[in-house]
Each structure stands twice: as structure tokens, then as C-alpha cells.
Simulated scan of single mutants.
Amino acid sequence: MFRGRLEAGPRALGHRSILASPLQPGVMERLNDRVKFREPFRPFAPVVLADHAADYFTLGQPSPFMSIASGATDLACQAIPSIVHVNGTARVQTVTREQNRFLAEVLAAFGARTGYPVLINTSLNIKGKPICGTPEAALDCLTGSGLDGLLLGTRITHGAVKIGYSFWGFMGAGITDTPDGGRSHRATLIDGLTAAGHHVVFLQVNRDLDEARDDLGDRYTWEQRLPDIDVLMCEWRWPIPGRNTTACGTPGHTCDLHRQDELLAHYTCDRYLPTLLWDKDLQLPGDHRLRHADNVTVCEAALHPRAGAARLLFPVADAALDNADPVALAAASRDLPLVYIGNQYDRDAEFDRYFAPVAATVPIASPGNGPPPSAGPS
């Protein structure tokens, strides 16, 4: 369960927890062997509705932080022995609706169904890993262990995840003179996610077909409405004068900012879905409110991302790396003495200082993204 704010302290208390039925035969062995990957004798702590704690534990006081060991009653030892250690104790957590309404309702529902408002509660992580701090870590925990499912915010997923992806570019070659550096790696990322069993839907118009007349067939899915998804991933868009800051319908206008705002409002804010913002061009302001949202992870394409951001580099297909011969590549002829790959957004000073002086000494050809730099022959 990955829900709400990350708790501070030594125990997972229901926001980053693995919950299991103590009534399931072999539950301890399964948790230790297939989920936690640890020694079979390791015990698990119970969480119980505070109003029913006395039925199962002799503690006689609230224990909201799972920090006190208690004796177990005969009822607990006989009916739910999986939560009782070999010495007859349990490190219990008591819960009230005031402390955690959602977890209390889960316990009440389980109690109504089974007669026992008690669950096993252990931290959402596997052996050797920290407690899951991001939706991506929680999904890795799900796919890398024997968990049956994962509650991400308000949605339950079972291994495969439906990802809503927004990029406002092209999956194929696109249009040469349209700035879109993502064409170099976007398909590799999406194909990798699909190969891992996830379903990706592009939350935008099919620009490949509409503008580039490139029919990619049924290889990908585009959706202009707001479909049900598990996770939202956006290549962060920002205001670019003359393109997405003009009025809708103006020649050259793109609606990428409008669509991004719509997606973030619907999925991230209203539905509280896990959201990944890929800030490739470092355009997300440092004080932007989304940087502080519990359900948002900001990623940068950098070996050393800025504080608060995670690393998400541009991917290269495994097959390309596996089939590459470094000796042959090093020996190949090179008819281009100088190459610059990328865009020039907000890098004019660095571009003029480092690249333009060298570019002035060689012929320049620009395959896309506008005219070549003014220095040097063109």
C-alpha cells in the first residue's frame, strides 16, 4: 500500500505498508520467502482496530506507533497464531479512525468479512532495500516480489501498470524542422515499458499520423480524452513564446500546455494518481508546487540531478548495445569533424561561447530544429 505522505520513524504505519491476512495458511512463510526474502523465523507485527485490541492483546493501552511488545490473549494464539511470536508476544499497532481513517476502514471491512479486525502490517520494501519512497520504487517492489497487488493512491494494480504518457512530439521520424529531441530515445523507452508487460497510452493527438503522415498502425495507442490509468508520466512542457503561448487556432500554435494542465488537474490533483514529471530541459521552476506534492516524482536526464529530483537518463536499446562492436566503431571513418546533438533552449550564452567559435572553422549543416548557428559558413 502506497498512499499519502511518507511516515517518519522506524515503523510503517499504513502509508507504506504490506498488509496480509493473518488467517491465510502459510502466510508467514510466504512473506518471508517470496516477499521479504529473509529468514523464516522473522516475525511480523499485527495492526488492529483500537476498540478491539483487548480481545487479542494484553497491552492495556494504545500503541499507535507499533513500538510496544504485548502479550497475546488465548483468542489470538488460537485464531490468528501467525501474528504471535514464539514467546507469546506481538509488537502491536492500534489504529483509530482519527489516526488513520482509511486503514481503520480496511480493518473494519476485514473484520466484517472474517470476524477478526486484525491484519499483518510490515513495511513496503524487500530485504536490503529502503522503504519505498516513490511510486516507481513501489512498482519495483511489486514486480520484484511475490506481492499480489499494490494500492497506489486510490487505484489497485496487479503487476502490469497502465501508464498515461504525455510528450506532444513524435514516435517516428516526425517532421524534420520541428524541435523534438525526444525522437532519439522515446520509442526505446515506450517499447521497453511495453516489453515489461505494461500498457502505455499516449494522452494526446496522433501527430505522427496527422502532421507527418506516418501511420504507425496499431503499434501504439493515442487517446485525447481522459481514460482510466494507473500512473501519469509527462515530459514536462513549458511556455515557448510564439508557439504554445498564443491563442488557440493561431497559426503555429500548439496546445501542449493546455493539455498538460488538464492532465495534471485531473489525474495528479483530483485523482491523486502517482505522477512522474520528466524535466528533460530543466524547465520546471525550483519553487513549483508540484515539486512538493507527495504523489509526484520529478526526474532529470542527468547523472547528478538537482536536489529533490531523481535520475532518468535517455535510454538506449539493449540490442543496440549488445550488437555494437567498439573496435569496429572506433576504426570507422568520420566525415564530420564536429557534431552537436540537442536543442538550444536557454543555452544561447553557452552555445555562443563553446560551440560557435569552433563551428566557425568548419562547414555547417543543420538537419533539423531550425537554422545553423550564425558563426561560420553555412
Rank of each mutant, 00 (worst) to 15 (best):
R16S: 11
L75K: 15
L209C: 08
P179R: 09
V161R: 00
V86Q: 14
D218N: 15
G60D: 12
H158Q: 13
A90D: 03
P179M: 10
A187W: 01
L31Y: 05
A138M: 00
I126H: 10
R353A: 15
Q283N: 01
G197Y: 03
I131H: 02
E262Y: 00
P130T: 06
A50V: 00
I156V: 15
A195W: 07
F351D: 03
V86F: 07
G164P: 03
C77K: 15
R289M: 11
G252H: 07
P372H: 13
F170Q: 01
V296G: 06
T245C: 14
S17E: 04
P130L: 13
I240M: 09
A356I: 04
M171Y: 12
G370N: 12
T275R: 04
G60K: 12
Y56L: 10
S123C: 11
N87C: 07
P10M: 10
K36Q: 05
V205N: 12
F65E: 09
H288G: 02
K127Y: 12
G60A: 07
A319D: 14
R16G: 05
E39K: 10
I120Q: 03
V201H: 02
H258R: 08
V35W: 00
T221N: 06
S17G: 08
D346M: 09
L6W: 01
D210Q: 13
R16C: 05
D230C: 02
R213M: 12
L257T: 06
F57G: 03
T114W: 03
R3F: 04
A69D: 14
L107H: 04
P117W: 02
D270R: 15
P40H: 10
E300L: 11
G182A: 12
L273V: 02
P326Y: 06
A76W: 01
I18L: 04
L329K: 03
Y116S: 02
W222F: 15
T268N: 06
